[in-house]
Design a protein around this nucleic acid. Structure first.
Lengths: 202, 202
DNA sequence: GTCTATAATGACGGAGTAGTCAGTTTCTAT
DNA sequence: ATAGAAACTGACTACTCCGTCATTATAGAC
């Protein structure tokens, strides 16, 4: 029989992941040593390897966690009645994340992950799946708006979704580089642009 | 007296930088060893250190190079007469870069650099200066358009510039992750959106 | 309390890497 | 030719880091 409960086990895991997030945010994946993570977590070298197969596995686990959370968020915003409200809700949601000091570590590590996606197949798959599912969600919202006559018909929904995603990704970069920078005017402008370009009511 | 001319010296330097770009694109900054760069360049371990102080210095030099080139590009597009044409030219310029197979290494390494900017002060400064100068260039173009009455007056030029930059940055990510993906519909859409939201002619 | 399986520990080995430097080659001036 | 300086070489060093494993600690069964 297990010496610790499943909850305790999960808590240990989270403890390591939290330590790793903090270290990775500070020093990046590659300049962070497993010893750093161990020190930050308060555990021991060996224990790390009871919970993760390798350092790469730890990185991938962080990425998985992140994408799971993101998917949940996106799903949340999608289920508004008014399609225009859905999109505005998404914009507000991301705007909030970018300016929330509690999420800077996550932002910074996310950016590291984007670079890592170029070489690490598992991270790459996660990122692309994340983008792709966000895109389909947006496309569904836009198409629904077009069907119900709230949005202009002529618009290329896929392209529009992709543009919105690129926009958010760019803001993530800028927020990660300069947490102080106020992106609020930009979000305001995007709100207006979306209104103008999507909505039939001018 | 020097044994080789300044041109030869510069050529050697470029030779190393080219090798580094190729290696970094393939394996990332941190999984690339100096031995890799040396092998790819056809020189020797010691020679690398005759041209660069350290591996970090090599990375920073690549970043500097890049930003120099980018600044030149931006300046080029800025000096169109018609402000709207300036912006469209910039869009086409970036669109071209993203789909040019000869530039994938540069794209991929650029993304690495964006992550590196979080920790490496010199890279960070370069990136921020690059963004900032692109932004001011865009702002100048937009303001000029507003003065001459081609663009809507009410618009927040700074926010608009920042939005455009975020957009491009997002496209860079997507192009780096999926070189196959056709972003053309997106650029088309951006063209139209810019037209709609900036221009007074509808 | 004792026994056993599970969990945790941390010192260590082996692999790999950045940067150096004593020696070699090559260019130029004379 | 030859000297001497500049450029180049590559084996080597000192160091770091990941992952292991023999050992120790601990929780629960009885």
């Amino acid at each position: 029989m297990p010496k610790i409960s499943a909850e305790q086990r999960e808590a240990r895991r989270e403890q390591i992941l939290a330590a790793a997030l903090s270290c990775f945010s500070r020093d990046g994946f590659h300049r962070t040593t497993t010893a750093d993570v161990v020190r930050e977590s308060g555990l021991s070298q060996g224990t790390l390897y009871l919970y993760f197969k390798s350092k790469d596995d730890l990185i991938a686990a962080l990425a998985d966690d992140r994408h799971q959370r993101e998917a949940a968020l996106n799903a949340l915003a999608e289920h508004q009645e008014d399609p225009l409200k859905s999109i505005h809700a998404l914009i507000r949601l991301y705007a909030g994340r970018l300016s929330d000091p509690a999420q800077t570590d996550s932002l910074r590590v996310g950016l590291q992950g984007w670079a890592e996606a170029l070489r690490n197949e598992r991270v790459r798959t996660g990122v692309l799946e994340g983008v792709s599912s966000a895109r389909s969600a947006l496309v569904r919202v836009i198409r629904r708006g077009q069907r119900t006559g709230v949005f202009k018909r002529g618009l290329d929904a896929t392209a529009m979704a992709q543009v919105l995603i690129a926009l958010f990704q760019g803001f993530v970069l800028q927020a990660a580089w300069e947490p102080r920078r106020d992106l609020e005017p930009c979000f305001k402008l995007v709100d207006d642009l979306v209104q103008d370009s999507l909505s039939c009511s001018r």
